[in-house]
Design a protein around this nucleic acid. Structure first.
Length: 483
RNA sequence: CGGGGCGUGGCGCAGUUUGGCAGCGCGCUUGGUUUGGGACCAAGAAGUCGCAGGUUCAAAUCCUGUCGCCCCGACCA
């Protein structure tokens, strides 16, 4: 970065100096969020919430297209319900918020604020599922959940967060497994297509899986600082919950059977992923698909051409609005240069400059946030060309992120090399693992790296020696330090 | 849960050592000149110095207590 570039962003710590501070500066300065007066809680400001709304819309479409319906379940869960599934209790007990009073009166039984809704939803499903004809039951809810976290970071881990959680019930184990993988596929497609974030799909180890699940599948993304982020999970719950909540159906063979279940979710954490994958020292870079503002029009006003320029800008906005989320920055009292920096920091994919010189030539100056490339386009062609340029930006962001991930993915065959990479550049590390939880645990203790997933489609088919104990096996996994 | 840091106009800070008119920069308001990469001039508004108690003629400053938030680590979407 040149000194000249440095001047543009005075308020944000450079990424290379302190990635963590860069991230915090950015989310505050771009008004994605602000700290609220409750530990670990944040207000999501309009600009941040608009990103979430765009994500919601795009994912909701996919969830509905795969046959699911939205519903809503209570925020409160009777403590005894949460405690029914043993593993589940153990997993969430340390981080539940408890309501003990209603008004002045002490409650007979404390209520937990949902950390996830398996318990409350299963208690309802037990009433709704009677017959094989009731299956599959495919429901999703968009809601907030609360987990009393000790360490919090905006979007990545907050005490309260927004998400969707799908909860489905099936007649057979095969069907539940199929659903689990189908939704993982939906997440992968959504995150890669709309957020331009490449992910690796895989299975979590026993140690890393969801409390109460039979199996947990995950999509894992690599952040620009070399740490991995779990971007979404899909769980095959088996019959763990149906047995304790009594979700049974009468099958065609007249037998009463316990149902098979799945649950899956992604959260506002994805906003954090977008920031950490695409952002740079000048600020956010938002993928056009989810950018609240896809193109901002900045008028270059001069005393003589004032009205003419404004008029042209308004006209341009009207023409672009049907196909593009476009905003006209007609604030006076801010110089054009100030606006350039402001909108770049906010990650708007395209800036359209309209000034006296552009008017004379009948063009608009177009500047891409992803490449910084500046070009002029005849004003009349812009409505047709803009969607294509946005598509190019979207694709380019994905390509860049994928290239970065590939550059930062290393295959290692011995532990020394593994440690060296973690020390020097982090990133994803592919290695063989014998499957023993003890090896996994020791690697974690010694290096802070965890097994992110056992990939669904391993590229290495042959056998290798376990990174830690050297035992021959054919299980290639991804390791990384993670958020 | 451990370690560190911070609470003073909206934001960032100075002032606390050695008690004595609550200040600076940015932002904000109004008016004017400007506007092709963070413009300038002028006039303004805005603070119970986190909270409680104590010492003192006098407390942002000293003493005691307390609350909150942030960052970094161990555990988790």
């Amino acid at each position: 970065m040149s000194l000249n570039e440095k001047e543009f962003v005075k308020e944000v710590t450079p990424r290379a100096v302190d990635f963590s501070q860069w991230y915090i500066d950015l989310v505050l300065k771009t008004e994605l969020m602000d700290y609220a007066p409750i530990k670990g809680c944040m207000a999501i400001r309009p600009y941040g919430y608009a990103i979430w709304e765009n994500m919601q819309q795009l994912l909701d479409k996919r969830i509905k297209a795969t046959g699911h319906q939205n519903a809503y379940f209570p925020l409160f869960i009777p403590q005894s319900l949460l405690q029914k599934e043993a593993e589940h209790v153990e997993g969430f007990a340390p981080e539940v918020a408890l309501v003990t009073h209603g008004g002045d009166e002490k409650l007979n039984e404390p209520l937990v604020v949902r950390p996830t809704s398996e318990a409350i939803i299963c208690s309802m499903y037990a009433k709704w599922v009677q017959s094989w004809r009731d299956l599959p039951l495919l429901i999703n809810q968009w809601c907030n959940v609360v987990r009393w976290e000790k360490t919090t970071r905006p979007f990545l881990r907050t005490s309260e967060f927004l998400w969707q959680e799908g909860h489905t019930v099936h007649a057979t184990e095969e069907e539940a497994e199929e659903e689990t993988l189908k939704m993982l596929g939906v997440y992968k497609d959504f995150v890669e297509t709309e957020l331009a974030v490449p992910v690796i799909s895989g299975l979590k180890t026993e140690r890393e899986k969801f409390a109460g699940a039979l199996k947990t599948y995950t999509i894992e993304a690599l952040m620009a600082d070399g740490k991995a982020l779990q971007a979404g999970t899909s769980h095959n719950l088996g019959q763990h919950f149906s047995r304790v909540f009594g979700i049974q159906y009468l099958d065609t063979d007249k037998q009463l059977k316990y149902a098979w279940q799945t649950s899956w979710g992604v959260s506002t954490r994805l906003i954090g992923a977008v920031i950490m994958v695409h952002g740079d020292d000048r600020g956010l870079k938002l993928p056009p698909q989810i950018a609240p503002v896809q193109a901002v029009i900045v008028p270059i006003i001069t005393k003589k051409k004032r009205e003419e320029v404004f008029e042209k800008c308004r006209e341009l906005k009207t023409k672009l609005a049907p196909k593009t989320r476009v905003q006209l920055d007609d604030r006076e009292g801010y110089s054009a240069g100030w606006k350039f920096n402001e909108w770049e920091m906010k990650g708007v994919p395209l800036r359209l400059e309209v000034g006296p010189r552009d008017l004379e030539r009948g063009v608009v100056t177009v500047v891409r946030r992803d490449t910084g490339e500046k070009s002029t386009i005849p004003a009349g062609e812009l409505p047709q060309r803009l969607p294509h340029i946005l598509k190019e930006i979207q694709d380019n962001l994905f390509r860049q992120a994928l290239a970065f991930r590939e550059e930062n993915t290393h295959f290692v065959q011995n532990y020394a090399e593994f440690q060296e990479i973690l020390q020097e550049k982090m990133g994803l590390i592919k290695a063989f693992w014998c499957g023993d939880a003890a090896c996994e645990e020791k690697i974690k203790d010694e290096t802070k790296a965890t097994i992110r997933c056992i990939p669904l489609e391993p590229e290495q088919k042959e056998k290798g020696a376990c990174l830690f104990c050297g035992k021959e096996n054919n299980r290639m996994v991804y390791f990384a330090r993670a958020y």
